[in-house]
Amino acid sequence: MSQLAAPAIDEIKEAFALIDDWEERYRYLIDIGKALPPLAPEQRSEENRVKGCASNVWLVTHVERPGPDAIMRFEGESDAHIVKGLVALTLAFYSGRPAREVARDDAFDLFRSFGLEQHLTPQRSNGVRSMIDRIRRDAAAAMSA
């Protein structure tokens, strides 16, 4: 796995399909989190912080072609290893997709398909939900811009 970018969502899905052990899955999440490019210090601002996360999570939204055909790109980071992996997983699912798909699709369904929902603390699940909700709100706003 490259240290320059987190893996694509299809690569992550394939890896999860091959990894049965939850300790290994957590290690994989940590590894994909380490592959996220770091945010610039000024991007780790209160404005970019995701509210509702116990750990610090910062999310930067980029919109290409605002309006009905908007394309969404995201950057993110966390100060907690597993959470950073959850950020990487979420961004792999959403980044580069049309805003209409981002606003419609709930990445938590992907988390459920991996069995992550039952292996996350309620606090982490709430934080992931907050991040997903923020991404989907940003996509809806991009479409109406």
Rank of each mutant, 00 (worst) to 15 (best):
M1Q: 14
M1N: 13
M1S: 15
S2E: 15
S2I: 09
S2M: 12
A5L: 10
A5I: 11
A5S: 13
A5R: 13
P7N: 13
A8R: 11
A8G: 14
I9R: 12
E11Q: 15
I12R: 03
I12L: 09
I12W: 08
E14C: 11
A15W: 07
A17K: 15
A17S: 15
L18S: 15
I19C: 05
I19G: 02
D20V: 03
D21K: 15
R25S: 10
R25V: 12
R27N: 12
R27M: 06
R27D: 12
L29H: 07
I30N: 03
A35V: 10
L36Q: 12
L36S: 10
L36T: 12
P37W: 08
P38L: 04
A40Y: 05
Q43Y: 01
R44L: 00
S45Y: 10
S45E: 10
N48H: 14
N48Q: 13
R49H: 02
R49P: 01
V50T: 07
V50H: 02
K51H: 09
G52R: 00
A54R: 01
N56H: 15
N56C: 12
N56F: 13
N56K: 14
V57R: 00
W58E: 00
W58P: 00
T61C: 14
H62P: 05
H62L: 08
E64P: 10
E64A: 13
R65Q: 11
P68F: 07
P68S: 11
D69V: 04
M72Y: 09
R73W: 10
R73K: 15
R73Q: 12
F74T: 04
F74E: 08
E77K: 01
E77N: 12
S78A: 14
D79Q: 06
A80K: 04
H81P: 11
H81M: 10
K84Y: 08
G85C: 09
L86F: 08
L89G: 03
T90C: 08
A92W: 06
G96V: 07
P98V: 02
P98M: 03
E101S: 09
A103I: 03
D105A: 06
D106E: 06
D106V: 02
A107L: 01
A107E: 01
F108E: 06
D109W: 04
D109N: 11
F111W: 05
F111M: 07
R112P: 01
S113M: 07
S113H: 07
S113E: 13
E117H: 12
H119I: 06
H119Q: 14
P122Q: 01
P122L: 00
P122V: 00
Q123S: 10
Q123R: 01
Q123G: 00
R124M: 05
S125A: 11
S125K: 00
R129L: 08
S130T: 05
S130Y: 01
M131F: 03
D133Y: 01
R136S: 03
R136I: 04
R137P: 01
D138E: 12
A139E: 04
A139T: 05
A141W: 02
A142W: 05
M143N: 07
M143L: 13
M143V: 09
S144K: 13
